[in-house]
Amino acid sequence: MHIDIITVVPGLLEGPFAHSILKRAEDKGLASIRVINLRDYSTGKQKQVDDYAFGGGAGMVMSIEPIARCIEALQKERAYDEIIYMTPDGATFDQPMANALSLSQNLLILCGHYKGVDERVRERFITKEISIGDYVLSGGELAAAVVADAVIRLIPGVLNDETSALTDSFQDGLLAPPVYTRPAEYDGMEVPDVLLSGHEAKINEWRFEASVRRTQERRPDLLRDNQTGKSDTKSYKK
């Protein structure tokens, strides 16, 4: 997988992609991420990429011209499965969306800034608009890093244990069950006996029931969605 990210603040993305799983994926040759400075596509002396909004109002708007030059230049290099715009009014990012995007070969992500981009950018170039939550960030860079992390970790071979991603929260419409490690007893707090039993079927049953219970307690909306057909996962009503 290759991901290009267009930004006016490339320094914000240096840290997330230089460590941990994302760096491991790049080192293994399973994914590559390129951060592109939008100012390189501005023709003005000041490398300006924004302007005042028509009709007035507070805040600046990212101009269509440098964005168009950038995207069109990148499209000459490769065909993108999706051209994504990170925006608070996009579709809410979730695990099924991450799963779908992980099957892509090439992704292009545009990070918004200021009061957003000229609407004509969205009309002409953008194929998918994504939000990571109902709040506003200073720009789309951190949101783009979230999407890249969630997607790249699903690529086969990125995680040391490929089954790990399949047992994450939300993969089956449930939150993950509690997990424990050594010691088996700490300050009077003990690991459930079933997890020490070595009985795989009973352990799986315990984990499933614990997942359902935790989801009912913390995210009952997930179970409601399953039961009303809003999700592809089955109903877990016991």
Rank of each mutant, 00 (worst) to 15 (best):
Asn204Tyr: 02
Arg218Gln: 06
Val9Pro: 03
Glu129Lys: 04
Leu223Arg: 05
Ser235His: 05
Asn99Ala: 10
Val117Tyr: 07
Glu82Cys: 09
Lys202Cys: 13
Ile5Asp: 04
Pro156Gln: 06
Pro66Asp: 01
Ile109Asp: 03
Gly55Trp: 07
Pro192Val: 10
Cys70Phe: 07
Leu74Asp: 00
Leu223His: 05
Phe17Ile: 09
Leu159Asp: 00
Asp40Tyr: 11
Pro220Asp: 00
Gly133Tyr: 10
Leu30His: 12
Val147Cys: 03
Ser211Glu: 04
Ser235Glu: 08
Ile36Val: 01
Ile203Cys: 04
Leu101Phe: 09
Leu103Phe: 05
Pro192Leu: 10
Lys28Asn: 07
Glu65Met: 12
Leu166His: 12
Glu141Thr: 03
Val147Ala: 00
Val121Cys: 05
Ile130Thr: 04
Leu166Arg: 13
Ala144Phe: 05
Asp168Phe: 10
Pro220Leu: 00
Phe208Cys: 02
Leu103Gly: 03
Ile64Tyr: 06
Gly116Ala: 08
Ser138Thr: 15
Ala100Asn: 13
Arg69Asp: 09
Ser138Pro: 13
Thr7Lys: 04
Ala58Phe: 06
Val136Arg: 13
Glu65Arg: 14
Ala98Asp: 01
Lys238Tyr: 14
Leu223Asn: 06
Ser164Asn: 09
Phe208Tyr: 03
Lys128Gln: 09
Ala150Cys: 01
Glu205Cys: 08
Val121Ile: 10
Ser32Arg: 13
Val151Gly: 00
Glu200Phe: 15
Arg124Ile: 15
Asp40Leu: 11
Tyr41Asn: 08
Glu26Pro: 10
Glu82Lys: 13
Thr127Val: 01
Pro220Lys: 04
Tyr236Ile: 03
Leu107Ile: 06
Arg24Ala: 09
Arg213Pro: 03
Asp168Glu: 14
Leu101Pro: 03
Val61Phe: 08
Tyr135Asp: 06
Leu142Met: 15
Asp161Lys: 03
Asp81Ala: 09
Phe93Gly: 03
Asp172Val: 10
Val179Trp: 12
Gln216Tyr: 11
Asp50Asn: 02
Ala184Asp: 01
Lys115Leu: 15
Glu65Ile: 13
Ala53Gly: 09
Ala73Pro: 07
Pro177Tyr: 15
Gly198Asp: 10
His19Asp: 15
